[in-house]
């Protein structure tokens, strides 16, 4: 039982490491705040949520596990709120999103640039 829990926690921690490193790479790779926010949410949301699940599996007492569950439920609300505040600040200050050069775009089929 303990071994199974530890192996599952190891799986979630490994995915947290993978997504966290991906998010940090994206934070330095993309040139504008919107794309950095998208890539940063990979590190700031997915990796942290995986860490929470792993910590929940490794917690030994009921009081600790219940608090981790409550933190996870509030994280579902609080993580998008922070991203939204920053994105809304960028949008209201008139920042236009970056467009990659045509050869590197993925699967865009329409002709006109403006919706």
């Amino acid at each position: 039982m303990t071994l199974a829990r530890e192996l599952l926690a190891l799986l979630f921690f490994a995915s947290a490491v993978i997504f966290g490193i991906g998010g940090i790479i994206g934070l330095f790779r993309f040139p504008d705040p919107y794309s950095r926010l998208q890539a940063g949410s990979l590190c700031g949301t997915t990796a942290i949520f995986s860490i929470f699940i792993g910590a929940l599996l490794l917690s030994t007492s009921l009081a600790v596990a219940a608090r981790v569950v409550v933190i996870m439920i509030f994280f579902l609300v609080s993580a998008p709120t922070g991203s939204h505040i920053v994105a809304r600040f960028a949008w209201n200050s008139g920042l236009q999103p970056w467009k990659p050069p045509l050869s590197r775009r993925s699967g865009y089929t329409d002709r006109q640039d403006e919706p």
């Binding site: 993978i18 997504f19 991906g22 998010g23 790479i25 994206g26 790779r29 993309f30 919107y34 794309s35 998208q38 890539a39 990979l42 949301t45 997915t46 999103p97 970056w98 467009k99 990659p100 590197r104 775009r105 993925s106 699967g107 865009y108």
Partner: peptide, 16 residues
């Protein structure tokens, strides 16, 4: 997140 990770590593994105 998985699609996002592949996009970050390959760089083929289209933000709009």
């Amino acid at each position: 997140s998985w699609f996002m990770l592949l996009a970050v590593l390959s760089g083929r994105v289209n933000p709009r």
